[in-house]
Design a protein around this nucleic acid. Structure first.
Length: 478
RNA sequence: CGCGGGGUGGAGCAGUAGUAGCUCGUCAGGCUCAUAACCUGAAGGUCGCGGGUGCAAAUCCCGCCCCCGCAACCA
């Protein structure tokens, strides 16, 4: 460990038009695990998450239940925070894009930088507008020339928007990504985006006319043109720097930017093309890295209400507890590919690895310790195996936790081979020494588990330190 | 010819060139400290199909079949 650079990590900011689902819980949990690891290594960290609030979808959702959009937002955001609390997400800040103090000044400053660079221009946009949707639709959305949801033909209307000259940055982006100045992990995602950029980038629309039904406080006004509000790119992506104080008090920004963005494969293009292009235009440092994960599927298919294969994180939390869910998400979902979860598999894994494996091991060692040792042991500075730290350096968190569970198996084998429960009778001194060593190894497992299963980690460490067998950590489920 | 991912013992997965591994399940044995848990051993796979390169391929190349996701203003 040479110098410890500050470590800044972000999750995407999620849409508050519905409750968070397991996919959101996944992104957030692996992000939390990565941050906790860095903290464990003694690095200074800053962990950002938040919500993307200036959206028509949210307004629609609010109206559907007859609520005021702003009140609706507050309700949904509190459910986000509630879920994060249950999941043990150790975020430092929750940024909301309706936050006029924390977010708007930075977003507007960024916009002005893009204007100064000559990259914002006005253009007439012509498209098919569906009155029912209050939004533009595309040709292929239509059935027999009509909107399938509203059975009406869309109107062709013209709208004047601001555009951002994304096209101008294609070559530079390509070079930055190819050279690794902007790292994209895994490599398949990097190749994917490189080939996408090679096929050319078009300018993107960057604003929308202010909707009359949007309440004040929703939608960031375009600097110098109150008739327009920012569209999602400058409005939302900018959160990664505004949260740190860009555009207001930027001490945190100076300290922590650039950081690492964790994101799902579906939003790769925005994070690998539009966002870095904005930063290039504004002459700000690019993100250090994009970590792109896959989707959590259920039964091999993307979760959807129509298929009825949706698994609510709350349901698993209620039945199995936070650490069981974190365990499944971090070990049994490959971080860089799609991973699957079913109730059946979850239960199988729970019983095999948590009840019979880790939980049982803690019980058998701590029973021996409680009966035969006088007093516990103090933890020394943890010594993490190379397998463990290397896996984290590669962001392969599933392999890092594998290492912890490999030690569970090794300890079970060691107990069978050395029979401390016999030795302590035939040779009490040697037996106690052996049991003591077992508790120390168990402590090591507890330390390795901290980023993944913080509550369990704490219980194991406390058990060893106080020399007391804890209550059953993971009761077997029948 | 749109882009990407996947197809490995009954089930779920790991494994990107050098004797095919893990979890569950099955069968047999051991242990008794532990959550009827733990440990050992066995059965079970021509690694989707066909071709190619290599001394050697699940692993690289070509073709094909099947499944899944995305296809820019949509997180």
């Amino acid at each position: 460990m040479s110098e410890k650079k500050p470590f800044y990590l972000t999750t995407p900011i999620f849409y508050p038009n519905a409750k968070l689902h397991l996919g959101h819980a996944y992104t957030t949990t692996i992000s939390d695990t990565l941050v906790r690891y860095r903290r464990l290594m003694g690095q200074e960290t800053y962990f950002l998450t938040g919500s993307d609030e200036n959206t028509q979808k949210m307004v629609d959702a609010a109206r559907k239940v007859g609520e005021d959009p702003i009140a609706f937002l507050d309700d949904i955001v509190s459910t986000f925070k509630g879920l994060y609390a249950e999941l043990g997400i150790s975020y430092d800040q929750f940024i909301r894009t309706t936050d006029q103090q924390a977010h708007w000044p930075g977003a507007q400053l960024l916009w002005k930088k893009l204007v100064d660079a000559g990259d914002i221009y006005k253009k007439e946009y012509e498209g098919l507008y569906c009155v029912g949707h209050e939004a533009f639709v595309t040709e292929k959305d239509l059935v027999d020339g009509k909107c399938p949801d509203h059975a009406t033909a869309p109107e062709k209307i013209k709208e004047e928007n601001y555009f951002f000259k994304l096209s101008r940055y294609a070559d530079t982006l390509k070079e930055k990504i190819a050279s690794g100045a902007l790292k994209i992990i895994p490599e398949t995602r990097r190749n994917e985006i490189l080939s996408f950029i090679s096929s050319g980038l078009e300018d993107v629309s960057f604003s929308r006319p202010r909707k009359t039904d949007w309440p004040p406080g929703l939608g960031i006004p375009v600097p110098g043109d109150d008739s327009q509000v920012m569209y999602v790119w400058c409005d939302a992506l900018s959160n990664y720097v505004t949260a740190l104080g860009y555009g207001r008090d930027d001490a945190l920004y100076q300290k922590f930017w650039p950081g690492i963005h964790v994101l799902g494969k579906d939003i790769l293009r925005f994070h690998a093309a539009i966002w870095p292009a904005m930063l290039l235009s504004a002459k700000l440092p690019l993100p250090a890295m994009l970590l792109v994960h896959g989707f959590v599927t259920s039964g091999g298919k993307k979760m959807s209400k129509t298929l009825g294969n949706v698994i609510d994180p709350e349901e698993l939390l209620a039945e199995y507890g936070v650490d069981a869910l974190r365990y499944y998400l971090t070990r049994h979902i490959n971080p860089f590919e799609d991973g699957d979860i079913t109730r059946e598999h979850f239960k199988e894994i729970y019983n095999a690895n948590l009840a019979n494996g880790l939980g049982n091991l803690v019980a058998r060692i701590m029973k021996l310790a409680e009966d035969h040792l006088e007093g516990g042991t103090k933890p020394e500075s943890a010594d993490f195996s190379k397998n463990y730290t290397d896996a984290f350096e590669r962001f392969e968190i599933n392999h890092a936790i594998d290492e912890a569970f490999r030690h569970v198996q090794l300890l079970d084998q060691k107990i069978t081979a050395t029979e401390p429960f016999k030795l302590v009778k035939s040779d009490p001194e040697a037996g106690k020494k052996l049991i003591f060593d077992l508790t120390r190894e168990l402590l090591g497992i507890g330390q390795m588990l901290e980023p993944f299963m913080p509550e369990t980690s704490k219980k194991i460490k406390e058990a060893v330190i106080t020399d007391k067998k804890p209550t059953t950590l993971f009761p077997r489920k029948e």
